[in-house]
């Protein structure tokens, strides 16, 4: 059975000799990212606590790092890297598009209700 794996991550920056080695490499990377998250979560550096786009800067960093982790889990553990481009796009874009839409709608509405609570009963009087 021929199972070919693409044996490089970070766009070829890090190359591996075998699939097993790549798996351990990805584990090292994921552990490293989690460690960064935990350290940032415990110490909460003052510099990163400013508001960026309606949220603390630190929260955006957390979300970014989470997506990075999700990418490597899907690409290397679930072997998405070795699937055809079409399958990859079908799975990823369906999810990304619907989730972005849902999250935007719900958070927008949540923020609106919060402003109604804090500013009085009417926020926009149409």
């Amino acid at each position: 059975m021929a199972h070919e794996h693409k044996l490089e991550i970070f766009r070829g920056l890090w190359k591996f000799k075998s699939n097993t080695q790549k798996i351990w490499g990805v584990l090292v990377f994921l552990t490293f990212v989690t460690a960064i998250e935990v350290v940032l979560g415990i110490y909460k550096p003052e510099v990163l606590m400013g508001q960026v786009l309606g949220m603390k800067g630190l929260n955006w960093i957390f979300i970014f790092l989470t997506i990075v982790k999700a990418y490597y889990i899907t690409w290397d553990f679930m072997h998405m890297r070795d699937e055809t481009k079409a399958l990859r796009r079908m799975v990823v874009w369906t999810g990304v598009f619907l989730i972005c839409y849902l999250v935007f709608i719900l958070l927008q509405e949540g923020g609106y209700i919060e402003s109604v609570y804090s500013d009085g009963f009417i926020k926009h009087d149409f």
């Binding site: 989730i99 849902l102 999250v103």
Partner: peptide, 21 residues
């Protein structure tokens, strides 16, 4: 299933934004 989970997490976000302070 990913969409199901993201709906739950988005609902959590909704409630959290509602009581953000």
């Amino acid at each position: 299933d990913a969409l199901t989970f993201s709906a739950f997490l988005a609902a959590y976000g909704f409630s959290r934004f509602k009581f953000i302070d």
